[in-house]
């Protein structure tokens, strides 16, 4: 199975948009002073932003039908640091690691890398295969 990949960029504006869209207004995702006060190097992206951005690779793989994404899960293993005035790139890669003919599903394993660090761990999604009913 050939590998899938996608690069997604994130800046402070995008984190504000994600905070509004998700309702997660933790100030460590927009205020560097608050972030540093709790020991972080700078503002960091929401882990759930990274997971959401990574899952787009899966939705795209199933032909743009989010209804075919049956489940997804991840561990959060690293931080996406987003300095002021900069856009940071996250590389998402994935591959199909399992096909269950009987259940009509495929399992994809994903990785997300930022600045050389893996920021998601054991990230996987189960999708309904093309041509199978829900």
């Amino acid at each position: 199975m050939s590998g899938l990949s996608r690069t997604v960029s994130v800046d402070r504006d995008r984190l504000v948009a994600y905070a509004d869209a998700s309702g997660d207004q933790n100030p460590i995702h927009r205020d560097a002073e608050v972030a540093r006060s709790v020991g972080l190097p700078d503002v960091i992206a929401h882990g759930m932003w990274t997971m959401g951005a990574a899952l787009e690779l899966v939705t795209d793989y199933v032909g743009g039908d989010p209804g075919r994404v049956l489940s997804c899960q991840t561990r959060f293993t690293g931080m996406v640091v987003v300095p002021e005035g900069r856009s940071v790139e996250v590389l998402v890669e994935g591959e199909v690691t399992k096909t269950d003919e009987q259940a009509g599903t495929e399992t994809l394993q994903l990785t997300a890398t930022c600045a050389g660090e893996k920021v998601l761990g054991r990230c996987q999604a189960v999708v309904r295969r093309a041509g199978t009913d829900a």
């Binding site: 994600y18 869209a21 959401g52 787009e56 795209d60 209804g67």
Partner: peptide, 12 residues
């Protein structure tokens, strides 16, 4: 809004 924020581009 959520799709925009995570970079989900699909028409659906």
């Amino acid at each position: 809004a959520f799709a925009d924020a995570v970079g989900a581009t699909g028409a659906a």
